[in-house]
Design a protein around this nucleic acid. Sequence first.
DNA 1: CTGAAGGCTAC
DNA 2: TCTCGTAGCCTTCAG
Length: 716
Amino acid sequence: MLKKTDGAKRTRIGGIAKLEDANWAGGRNANRCTLILTEGDSAKALAVSGLGAISGRDTFGVFPLRGKLLNVREASHDQIMKNVEIQNIKQILGLKHNHDYKSVDSLRYGQLMIMTDQDHDGSHIKGLIINFFDHFYPSLLRIPNFLVEFITPIVKVWKGKQEHTFYTMPEYEEWKAKNNDGRGWESKYYKGLGTSKATDAAKYFSAIDKHRLAFDPMKPEDRQLIDMAFNKKKADDRKEWLRQFKPGTYLDHDIKTIPLQDFVNKELILFSMADNIRSIPSVADGLKPGQRKVVFACFKRNLKKEIKVAQLGGYVSENTAYHHGEVSLTATIVGLAQNFVGSNNINLLEPNGQFGTRMQGGKDAASARYIFTNVPRMTRTIFHQADDAILNYLTEDGQRIEPEYYLPTVPMVLVNGADGIGTGWSTSIPNYNPKDIVANIRRLMNGEEQERMTPWFRGFNGTIERIENDKFKVSGIATKVDDKTIEITELPVRKWTQDFKEMIEEMTSGGKDGKTDASASVIKDYEEHHTDTTVHFKLHMKDSGMKAAEAEGFEKFFKLTSTITTSNMVCFDLQGKIKKYASPEEILADFYPKRLEFYSLRKQHLADELNKEFERLSNQARFVTMIIKKELIVNNKKKKDLVTELRELKFRPFPKGAKRPESESEDALEEEEEQGTDGDYDYLLGMAIWSLTAEKVCCPVGTITDIAGREASHSA
DNA sequence: CTGAAGGCTAC
DNA sequence: TCTCGTAGCCTTCAG
């Protein structure tokens, strides 16, 4: 029997505006037709443009998806039915519910082609499509060549007539490692389908066999793996799946067909890994990569005066190889600057403008083009500049980007807490009091035991008490003023004033959703006296309402409590492995020795720098002295000869500029250190001749010697 | 409900 | 009436 929502094999279907239907779809030659599902409208445009180049509109249809497809596996019937995306796909293909397909003859298309961006989120979308078919129409996945994908290169390299095309980054990385880091080869990156041009599209579709890759017919084992990947109840299985991930894994696209198992284990897994990396913070600095990129960019730009958030977003993108949407990035910047109760205890950025309030939990922030930010002094106190030189900076496309992690002077993951949802893993860490944290650091320094810490939120006036080992009760404040009046002056952390007001509104009208029911009303009227940082409701109670409230207790009656659990505190540890922490003290215990190590590294680095400066000044002093004593003649000599002379006299070369390119090998560096280029002697030769006049020499020489002497005793 | 991601629709 | 910018919405993922 046909269900109302089933598709049907019709030649023409209407009501799906974005569908570019194949001319032959649903007709005699329907089995020769391919429906291309694209990731968004711009990819659809690319496909349509490519089809134009090969006159493909008879046999190819195109339909754009809107980002992440519904995971139908555990979705409610209601949610599936009202999901426009799913319903459209059913209509376009002519899918019949519960039909056991032996062939594609009853469908409007004989083949489905997935065309997503060649990135991790694109892999996720492919997975969600496969999940949809596995769940509702597994028989279709068993038909050879029903499901195919369209792949586009992400890197091309060439040297003369030789050319290599790579479809995955790990594949490219592997090739680079084997080929002298790709030196001597020219390369081009293709980032996202949206950046492709019409000529690219024409090229792809003219050679469609190169870009079309079929999935293997589904085997029984495949179904279990797909379930493992998408079943909501199998997060623990996914943890195990991710634990055995081997770095460098990728799906080789130089094959005839893709086993679905390989898709899950070699491609989808890369999304899941990336999902965790972007969602779960490091225990070292409490930052996720997106946040770390923002902080790095602010330091790099050496922000002194305020900058528009939208503009900072652009700067971050350019300078840190950020490859995602700007909406996401500006939200990250805003989040770092928020300071209302329940957000950051120490906001790393300054909120100049409307960055959101506790009225709506920050959702009331103004648009990024209206608001400004800056780096508060505190941020550079915590992320100390003296550590910059000893951090491990990452590179991407030859660009030096943010460090693997910062190491703030206090564990910021505890100060500001963290929330994140990845794959298999999620994390939830509450805020703690910096004073408590520092006190515990002191205890560790003295070899004492840490004291147990309780979550703490700056500006919060209510109470937080431990009710279980990893459970805390958070209470707001309600006070009886007189027989008819109750004041509410604090809400539980992260209960937003707006939401609470809606409840008060219902208690006043006695109804829900605009309906009123006077008999259920318990509040006669109420006043609001909030400021931007405090909560203050004055409730004029009905007599019956006051009675009921007192009988139940204000806390319960007004829902003025919430709980914080500390049973899911997950971070990337200092080895880069995902780790669940049992307590904030355990987090501190991981952080502390690394910070100590960094203090000694910092000290060593500073000492090295001072020694270098000492040597430089000593050399200059010796240089001047030799000239005065006429042991060295500089007049009328060529620079080249003079440098040779300086080398013979064992003057040390000092290169100009702080850093050399990192690609140079250690050996080359050391050799250059000893010999130095001619320019490396400019610190001597550049000393202006006028400073060697009779009047000036007596004094400066003494001064230089003095300074050198002082520096020497410092570094010793 | 949280937040870093993918995306479009409607105003 | 059309275009532009964007607020507001849908989706994933774990607990």
